[in-house]
Simulated assay, not measured.
Amino acid sequence: MEKNLRARIRDGDPEAFGELFDACARSVYNHAYRLTGDWSTAEDMVSLTFLEAWRLRERIDPEGGSLRPWLLGIATNTVRNARRAARRHAAAVNRLPRQEGVRDFADDVASRIDDAGLLASVTTALKALRRPEREVLALCVWSGLDYAAAAEALGVPVGTVRSRLSRARKKLAAAADKAVQKTAEENREPARRRAQMSDGRTPAARPIQEGNR
């Protein structure tokens, strides 16, 4: 009987792994971007994710469904590790004596990888989320995984996925309401504090503002 894709990948079949890459690379790429906020960094994360997947191929259960949740879980861990490595590198470089006229690239590297959640359209809202909440949001909302698949990807119970997603949605709703209110206030026509008459004189009677009485 012909082996399924899982079994072939587990046995180290390069062609089967190529099929997996073709089927899931775009999904991994989009997920990595949502976690990093940078397309270039996301490309690096895709390469690292599939290298790690190949290294861990023997852990795959020969029986089961799509390997997409497994790959997205690896991608999530890869981004976490890259972020920690960038922070350690930046900290180490910052401890070194600075030389005049030499640009420090450590901050650039750290900021590229640590920009998780800074997507242009929802920057303010996503900044209110903790990392585990962003990860669940990326998996369940953007990548379309159900609770069970997201739990498999993150290695946590289904109940944890539910609670994190619920908190993320509440925070996003609150941040969105705040942003709408702020926009409305900014667009409101400012009150004229001192109305000028046509001849340049200020009227003798003016509204009394609270706090000045």
Rank of each mutant, 00 (worst) to 15 (best):
L56K: 05
S143E: 15
K3W: 11
Q99C: 05
A173F: 07
R201A: 14
S40I: 13
R162V: 15
V158W: 03
N4A: 12
L5M: 05
G18T: 07
W39D: 04
A116L: 10
V156I: 15
F17E: 03
V109I: 15
A110C: 11
A92D: 04
D44C: 09
S40E: 15
L20W: 04
E152H: 13
R103P: 02
T49Q: 00
Y33K: 13
A175L: 02
A116G: 15
A25I: 01
D108K: 09
N212R: 13
R57V: 09
G18H: 09
A82Y: 00
V79H: 00
H89C: 06
V102F: 06
L51H: 04
R10I: 07
D177P: 03
A42P: 01
K170H: 05
S163P: 00
W54N: 02
G211T: 03
C24D: 05
R55E: 14
V79S: 02
N30C: 06
D114Y: 04
G73S: 03
R59N: 06
R193V: 12
V79L: 06
A7T: 10
A116Y: 08
R194W: 15
N187L: 13
L51W: 02
A175S: 02
R88V: 14
A179C: 01
A23N: 07
V93S: 03
L118M: 14
L5V: 03
G159H: 00
R57A: 08
T160F: 10
R169K: 11
T41V: 15
V141F: 08
D61T: 06
N4M: 07
R103S: 12
V102P: 00
R8I: 05
A110F: 12
L72A: 03
P14E: 13
R193M: 11
L51Y: 01
A91M: 09
L165A: 05
A23I: 06
R84P: 00
T160S: 14
R201Y: 09
G101S: 10
D146V: 13
H31Y: 03
A125F: 08
T183F: 11
A23L: 13
L96S: 13
L67R: 01
V156Y: 01
N77E: 11
A86F: 01
D22C: 10
R95N: 12
G37C: 00
S166R: 13
L67V: 09
A195Y: 13
L51V: 10
C140M: 08
T49G: 04
W70C: 02
R84M: 11
R131T: 14
N212D: 14
R10P: 02
R131L: 11
A116V: 06
I9V: 15
E43P: 04
W70H: 04
R34N: 08
H31E: 02
I74M: 01
A82C: 05
I60D: 01
L67S: 08
D114I: 10
L48D: 08
C24S: 13
M45K: 02
R95W: 08
P132H: 07
R193A: 09
N212H: 11
K182R: 15
